[in-house]
Simulated scan of single mutants.
Amino acid sequence: MEKSQSEDYLKALLNENLRITTLDSRMFLGLFKCADSDCNIILAQTFEYRIPPPPKNVGKDSVTLDMTSRYLGLVVVPGEYIKKIEVEEFTSQMKKRRKPRHDIDIK
């Protein structure tokens, strides 16, 4: 993707809900405000979700784990720890668009 296309894509994402997964399995859900050349991302009105550790004495029975969350507000997610970036949309929003958005996998 060329630089001008990348800039246009990022501008289109401003104030969209992004779901960012980090290398330590945390997930941040918030409004995209900006990014810098080091791929650090700033989110506003952000919630952090953590997957709880699995119970120690689990047999063959299935166990449902609830993700714990907390409100953080304005957050900088360091680019070096980002594993995956997703745009969170409702079905009604997806139907209105012609071109599909793609999730971004950071490798």
Rank of each mutant, 00 (worst) to 15 (best):
E2Q: 15
K3Y: 15
K3Q: 15
Q5Y: 12
E7G: 07
D8F: 10
D8C: 15
Y9N: 14
L10K: 14
L10M: 13
K11G: 10
K11A: 14
A12W: 11
A12H: 12
A12T: 14
L13M: 11
L14K: 13
L14D: 10
N17R: 14
N17V: 15
T21L: 06
T22I: 05
T22M: 02
T22F: 01
T22L: 05
L23K: 13
S25T: 15
R26V: 04
M27D: 06
F28I: 09
G30N: 01
G30S: 07
L31R: 04
K33I: 11
C34I: 05
D36V: 03
D36W: 03
D36K: 06
S37L: 08
C39D: 05
N40D: 10
I41V: 04
I41Q: 08
I41W: 01
I42V: 14
L43H: 00
A44T: 08
A44G: 09
T46L: 02
F47C: 10
F47V: 07
F47I: 01
E48I: 00
Y49G: 00
R50L: 06
R50T: 02
R50N: 08
I51H: 05
I51F: 10
P52V: 08
P52N: 04
P52A: 08
P53G: 04
P55N: 03
P55C: 02
N57M: 06
N57G: 00
V58H: 13
V58K: 11
V58I: 12
K60E: 14
K60T: 12
D61M: 11
S62N: 13
S62K: 13
V63I: 04
L65D: 03
L65S: 09
D66N: 14
D66T: 09
M67W: 11
T68N: 12
T68H: 11
T68L: 08
T68C: 12
S69W: 11
S69G: 01
S69M: 04
S69L: 08
Y71K: 06
Y71Q: 00
Y71D: 00
L72K: 03
L72R: 08
G73V: 00
L74A: 06
V75A: 02
V76N: 03
V77H: 04
G79D: 00
G79L: 05
E80P: 00
Y81K: 12
Y81I: 13
Y81M: 14
K84W: 09
I85D: 00
E86W: 09
V87K: 10
E88H: 01
E88P: 07
E89Q: 15
E89N: 12
E89I: 10
T91D: 08
T91Y: 10
S92K: 07
S92G: 07
Q93H: 07
M94H: 12
M94F: 15
K95E: 15
K95M: 14
K96T: 11
K96Y: 05
R97A: 01
R97P: 07
R98T: 11
P100R: 07
P100V: 14
H102R: 15
D103L: 05
D103C: 11
I104M: 12
I104T: 13
D105F: 07
I106K: 09
I106M: 08
K107G: 06
